[in-house]
Amino acid sequence: MGKRVLVTGADTFWGGRMVQALEADRDVEVIIGIGTHSPSVPFERAEFVKSDQAYSIISRIVKATQVDTVVHTFLVVDSTLVSARAMHEINVIGTMNLLAAAGATGSTVRQVVVKSSTLVYGSSEKDPNTFSEETPRSSPARTRVERSLIEAESLVRDFAEDSPSTSVAVLRFANVLGNDIITSFSKNLSRPLCPSITGFDPLLQFVEEDDVVRALEFVTMRRVSGLFNVAGDGRLPWSEVASICGTRLLPLPIWSPARAIFPLIKMGYYELPPEMVDLLRYGRGVDTHKLKDAGFTYRYSSAGAVRNFIQAIRLKRGAGRKPKSYTYEHDVEQFFRNSRSVVHDVNQ
């Protein structure tokens, strides 16, 4: 019997990519996507359920569908995307409800995979050069997104302790760059001038978006459990990242750098959340041995991810905007899934 997988945040970038990756896998029998908005990518065989941000209906879904695996991609790691309140709802309350559903008596869930971020390590002058999974933070969390992720992870840790028969994997991803994803980093790097902090040239690690999906798929399908850092090999100084991307550094004042370009941030030209300011000062490095030892291989190094990203940007600039290829229509999706007229052939 194949896996029955529930993917949270199926309407978001990562959830959508994850559902698509799982659909291609024959060992996955059922895929349920849950999200707050309509999916932005077409699903072949996955079913989609709409929910509120805090996933209050999740226990009913888990009970009804008897899923054995939960892939929790819906943790907000970019504080520019949602309000502070929504971030708390999504990261903390959403995770809490999800884990409550997964840990309820009679629950069929045997595996939980969580997509977290290396933001939980923070970034400060007291940091070690390299964080391994066990290294504690060297300073208290200063930003909201870090606090909410730490809280969400501690809920997962408690869950893992309380349910020893469930395999729990938490993946902490470094900053992501890729063909499609838009983050604060990708936004800033695609401008002719890119924010930096005067006199600081931190070392950064990146992970390519395909490697993110592949890592999530890897731990899901291999039923790997534990805490893992995920980042491409090597580290680059921020100035080199900018150089590869063909942008120049815009040196901002050491104190409150975001205030110096405040109008541009308001206009949406730059994004400089506090966690990024910390990163542009002190950087962050993580040890990725553990996941590699478990058998995962990366396609991209940090530098490779940056190069791939800028090539995608150049293509976008050169080729003009692609037409929107897909719009979710509930009735159409229902027709394809439930109508007797549609020929279902899984083995094709």
Binding site: R235, S301, A303, R307
Partner: peptide
């Protein structure tokens, strides 16, 4: 090593 192809500088992981 393979990583060097994509690099512009020789700054190592320690800076």
């Amino acid at each position: 090593g393979g990583e060097s192809v994509d690099r512009l500088s020789d700054v190592d992981e320690w800076g």
